[in-house]
């Protein structure tokens, strides 16, 4: 099926003492397929991409369940810098217009 898909998957539990640790990950995948039919032949192709990222370790033991979140620090840093890179020109453009208007007045 063509399109974007997201699913949360859990791995085999890891037993440490009386506790059970279940790894959890989120998988994003995109696939597209195309088949072309012409008078002198057939052609087809497709691409498939997937990204699996860890989300949490679920700790179970003595009737208690706890989620330990896994943070991708590098990805967070990149997202913050990307947002800053998008906001910076907007802020500076607004500032320039304001400054030019103030000096003209």
């Amino acid at each position: 099926m063509n399109g974007l898909r997201r699913e949360t998957i859990q791995g085999r539990p890891l037993r440490v003492g009386d506790r059970e640790i279940v790894p959890e990950a989120e998988v994003w995948s995109v696939q597209t397929k195309q088949i072309g039919l012409k008078a002198d032949g057939l052609s087809g192709g497709g691409v498939w991409w997937s990204w699996a990222r860890p989300t949490a370790l679920i700790e179970r033991g003595s009737g208690v369940e706890r989620r330990v979140q896994i943070t991708d620090v590098n990805l967070h840093l990149e997202i913050v810098l990307l947002i800053a890179a998008l906001v910076l020109p907007v802020v500076l453009t607004i500032f320039t217009r304001w400054a030019n208007r103030s000096s003209a007045a």
Partner: peptide, 23 residues
């Protein structure tokens, strides 16, 4: 302790096929 290495994985693949006839 038990240490588990954790990674982020991206995978890509592309394929193309063609059949042609000279009529």
């Amino acid at each position: 302790s038990v240490v588990v290495p954790i990674a982020s994985i991206s995978q890509f693949f592309g394929v193309g096929l063609g059949v042609g006839t000279d009529q």
